[in-house]
Design a protein around this nucleic acid. Structure first.
Lengths: 253, 253
DNA sequence: TAGTGGTCTAGACCACAAT
DNA sequence: TTGTGGTCTAGACCACTAC
């Protein structure tokens, strides 16, 4: 191919098709040229053609299917999960609310086990490293598709021996931290959430059915009763499908 | 190499070294085997060895330097930008505060231009598509390194003819939306921020000096005076260096 | 000079999908 | 059967880095 700059051939091909995808010339679902066609059009070897498509796949712009071809991935608009307030009296958890709002069925898998606090969790819960905690792993499904995995940690110093010791069991199963803590006389007053992003781990790719090139949003959430942390949770959602929305007050001073 | 499952060779090599990186066997800065060494150890061709390292590079776990080798990328802990409240009286913008808190010098580049509202911006500002807006492009640098790019939009219906028409000019230059709006009698009461993630665009890679395999966090922020949007802004930060922290109240009912 | 990663060619076999 | 992408081999030249 004609090399009009120092840019590698695969990058130029990727640039060409990225531009076509982003400006709408190639709309969602459109088929990219096959690797053979790219080889002919640009006069490059198959490896270079593949490399070009690979760049776009790694950017999450393209899906490739063996035997069919590569296609522009539909940019499903990200659903923005509103987190402007948590309600004290509410019969269901946040996730079921999100799903219902989107008109979807919701399923939750949960499993609890006693554990000891890692340094990271201990810091977040303001307890001693190694102190006993109840760890609960969740997987959330909407319309049968996995959409969120999370792991929560509660200090057993607070809940041991009560009937909310295990989040997924007992009379308040599935009601959320606020209601469960209320039940044992702890009044949750606020949550702090930290949002970040990274590449998914292999087990997250598996558990969330994440396509190549898609990263995850991670949310570290800690519920507080005044200054006292009562639960902290690591939430992972696919970054191509979900975003988080927050409301921030403007204060005087 | 021995194939004990249907997993491709490059994926198995990537899995091996991903595990070593994540469990600390290969700490930050450690050198991966060279491609030649991987070829020998696993009995594969160079392309397969390269592909394996490429997987890790695309996940942001590894940096490769021509002539030197591939190294475990230091997982610089993400700096969590606190966004629990905006203050009405404050002599500097949020960014300068963030930088000062991190002990870094801060520089801001800004350029304004009149524009018309796209459908997307019009919806966010609750104005008619095509209505006049002031568009301002920002680039923020900490310690001389670019760390944030953003583009803000203000309805000219609010600011035209006032001395805060251009955010980067006039007596209140650099003071932030809240102070500037206050100056023309508009009382900003809250902000709404939506956080999401995606692959960086080529110009963002350039402007933010983003390494391969790193995605960006995008924040759509809209300042409101009651129900009235007075400014909306698209913020882009490198996902390996910054996260966002929010505080959410628990309300009765 | 020797070793590294970056780019590229010219082949090959396979599983899968469409026809 | 044909075409697709997925995987892989065996080479090659280059620019960069360290010695």
């Amino acid at each position: 191919m004609t090399r009009w700059t120092g840019t590698p051939a695969y990058a130029q091909i990727a640039n060409d098709y990225r531009a076509k995808i982003l400006d709408g010339t190639l709309p969602a679902g459109a088929k990219l040229p096959s690797e053979s066609e790219l080889m002919g059009q640009y006069g490059v070897s198959r490896i270079v053609a593949r490399q070009a498509v690979g760049v776009l796949r790694n950017e999450g712009l393209v899906d490739s299917h063996s035997g069919k071809g590569s296609f522009v991935r539909p940019r499903q608009q990200v659903e923005r999960l509103a987190r402007d307030r948590y309600r004290r009296r509410k019969p269901t958890g946040e996730f079921a609310d999100d799903a219902r709002r989107a008109g979807a069925t919701a399923d939750i898998e949960a499993a609890s086990a006693r554990d000891t606090a890692s340094d990271r969790i201990a810091t977040r819960l303001k307890i001693a490293p190694g102190a006993p905690v109840m760890r609960t792993a969740y997987r959330f499904l909407a319309e049968g598709r996995p959409v969120q995995v999370s792991t929560s940690y509660e200090p057993l110093a607070l809940t041991q021996g009560t009937d909310v010791e295990r989040p997924e069991e007992g009379p308040l199963a599935g009601l959320g931290v606020i209601a469960r803590m209320d039940h044992i006389g702890i009044r949750v007053t606020e949550a702090v959430e930290s949002v970040a992003t990274r590449a998914p781990l292999p087990w997250e790719v598996e558990a969330l059915d994440i396509p190549p090139g898609v990263h995850v949003l991670t949310i570290e959430r800690t519920f507080l009763a005044g200054e006292l942390p009562v639960e902290t949770c690591d939430v992972v959602v696919p970054g191509d499908r979900y975003g988080m929305t927050y409301r921030i007050p403007v204060v005087d001073g």
